[in-house]
Amino acid sequence: MTRFIDKDTRVLVQGITGSQGAFHTHLMREYGTKVVAGTVPGRGGQTIEGLPVYDTVVEAEESHGVDASIIFVPAPYALDAALESVEAGLDPVVIITEGMPVRDSIELMARARLSGTTIVGPNTPGLIKAGECKMGIMPAQVFKKGEVGVISRSGTLFYEVAAHITRVGLGQSTCVGLGGDPVVGLDYVDVLRWFEEDPETEAVALIGEIGGDAEERAAAFIGDGGFTKPVAAYVAGRAAVPGKRMGHAGAIIQGSMGTAESKMNALRDAGVAVGEFPRQVAESLKELL
């Protein structure tokens, strides 16, 4: 079983001197994440937040034994940054960057497949192992260590559901933001496979949105017996207008494909408890556990 992240994961921040990079490095460390170094080409030798900055990933890796990378660099440089970490053997590589061209994502995913590297994102809030390690930009206060694995394409909606899970007295194991772009490293099925094996995850909250067919495929996987723990889901976008883009590249309905109804029905047919409102995901899980 591939490890995502835990309290021992040694994290590199690419783009650490930018405002987002620096800000979130501070918050990640506050949460307990072992951030050990950062990189920015041309800034090697500097320090930020008390951490050493290197020009290249290989140098950071050799000096500190880095495991994983989180990327905050601007979109035009995101492919380079991610390839550099993949080549250096870091895993997972989490890409927070928004606006990465889809051609670049395709190239990156093909390269990552060759080495078996897990890419999270792009355009993701990241991932968090509650109480141990946060590799992302999510607000820490809504999470509490517990038994529910969370998978989401969206960011704030993911925090909303996580907050409800905490409010009903449950907590989270690992939470994965898949990312809102058309081409991302992980899909629901990849993470469900992982949660099936993860002894700390007893149930899953699946948060979807309109566009694409990732939720339908997750439903098929669950329906075919690929995932055996309880699942509760919420799908956003019932009020969306076909053809209108709702922010995310992913959140657009084309024709009848990828509507909220089609996703909700597919999940229901697979035995998933589908809520009308985000809060009901947490309430269903409370009953199921």
């Binding site: 960011g155 993911f158 949105e209 956003a236 969306a240 922010g247």
Partner: peptide, 11 residues
């Protein structure tokens, strides 16, 4: 704030 939450608000 966020496309997902805003869509959920519309819903």
């Amino acid at each position: 704030n966020g496309a997902g939450l805003t869509m959920a608000t519309l819903d």
